[in-house]
């Protein structure tokens, strides 16, 4: 068995060859990229397999859209360039719809939505930040007032966020100059640094924050301060698709709509997030 595996590795190494990809969606065979480092949305288990909310949901959406989907792992920082380069045809990686991303790619209807905020250590002085819930879309003035009230707490602290995320954009827009902002390639890395006390807080989606809190590294962590959503934090998590792929968008849109309507998304969301993350229209 071992020998066969090794022989197979050697064989594959020798069989390096050019592959000319077919970009069209007509054949109903597509590749879907996910990050594999964003539990519980998508992650790699100890058997080396991809798992998570988006893997379950993706299989369901593909079945409804009559697509033959193959999931591939792709690092977050290269996830949009590789979509444009047609390495795969769709992204399901906890990616939020934003106007900035819409300049480059297209999105389907959102399949999940949830608030963002700070993940902190329970012992931190940031635990005293006031709570609340704010929408940057519906009540920008109120949200910005709440942000102003956070600044005295955060002054001089170190914030972590993942590179090219709405969380990072939000932190840079509102807290630049007040805090030091560090950028990480993956959320797992900033979680490790939060646990180690190298950063005082990380800006994350609450869904991911809760998964961290449930893991070994997060036993001393808590969500601090208010919950924010909408605006530059994104308009919901959706499938990312190349602009010209209108057929694929239509197929996914219909699948997402039906999965919302019959409660599939709610069921999967309860399974993975323990709360309902179905987007409210």
């Amino acid at each position: 068995m071992k020998l066969i595996r090794l022989t197979a590795i050697a064989g594959a190494v020798l069989a390096v060859c050019f592959s000319i990809g077919d970009a069209s969606a007509q054949n109903r065979k597509i590749k879907v990229a996910t990050e594999g480092a964003y539990a519980p949305w998508n992650f790699v288990n100890s058997a080396g397999k991809l798992e998570g909310f988006e893997l379950d949901l993706g299989a369901e959406l593909c079945k409804r859209a009559k697509l033959d989907c193959e999931f591939v792992a792709q690092d977050w920082d290269g996830i949009m360039p590789s979509l444009l380069a047609k390495k795969y045809d769709a992204i399901m990686a906890g990616m939020n719809i934003t106007p900035k991303r819409m300049e480059t790619i297209n999105f389907t209807a959102p399949y999940a939505a949830g608030p963002h905020g700070f993940l902190i250590l329970k012992s931190s002085s940031l635990a005293k930040m006031p709570g609340g819930e704010y929408s940057l879309t519906k009540d920008l003035a109120g949200a910005e007032k709440a942000i102003e009230e956070l600044k005295p707490f955060l002054k001089g602290k170190v914030l972590g966020a993942q590179v090219s995320t709405t969380n990072l954009n939000w932190a840079e827009k509102y807290f630049k100059g007040v805090v030091e902002i560090r950028e990480y390639k993956t959320t797992e890395q900033h979680d490790l640094d939060l646990a180690a006390g190298r950063v005082d807080a990380v800006v994350v989606a609450h869904s991911a924050a809760k998964a961290t809190m449930d893991s070994a590294v997060g036993k001393d962590m808590a969500i601090g301060g208010p919950a924010f959503s909408g605006g530059i934090l994104g308009l919901g998590v959706a499938v990312g698709i190349r602009k010209e792929d209108n057929d694929l968008k239509a197929a996914f849109d219909a699948a997402v709509k039906s999965a919302i309507a019959d409660g599939t998304i709610k069921t999967l969301s309860m399974k993975w997030f323990k709360i309902d993350m179905t987007p409210k229209s």
Partner: peptide
């Protein structure tokens, strides 16, 4: 740059992932 230090390569990485112009 792989441990959050923004020297020349760190800045370059950030710029590429923002603009996709490698």
């Amino acid at each position: 740059s792989t441990i959050t230090i923004m020297e020349v390569t760190g800045l370059a990485h950030k710029l590429i992932s923002e603009t996709f112009r490698s």
